[in-house]
Amino acid sequence: MPLDHETVTRIARLARIRLTQEVQEKTLPGLNSILGFVEQLSSINTEGVEPMVSASATTLRLREDRVDDGHCRDAVLANAPESFAGFFVVPKVVE
């Protein structure tokens, strides 16, 4: 099922990507062509096949419950556009 402009706008907003009208015009056929390519998979019968979660056959590795990280506030805040008194500072987001 090909995408329409409305869906592209919604996906862009969810991904926090600003699309100009011009870029969006080009994006729509691009996305549809990718989806069309992937769509070929639907022609395969997957009846009774478990959905694959991971490409590797490994299972989850676990670690011990030990505190051995953190305490690196300066490094964590180093790339923040703004910080104050050890906090990240962002434009007000009030709900």
């Binding site: 419950d65 505190v67 990280d69 953190g70 305490h71 506030r73």
Partner: peptide, 27 residues
């Protein structure tokens, strides 16, 4: 109740100074 976080080794304790219990994974 645990000593460290779910996917990193930072402390999960309550009440520490801001951003002191944050690793590169948590950020």
């Amino acid at each position: 109740t645990s000593a460290s976080k779910l996917f990193s080794g930072s402390s999960a304790a309550f009440g520490a100074e801001a951003n002191t219990q944050v690793s590169m994974v948590d950020s």
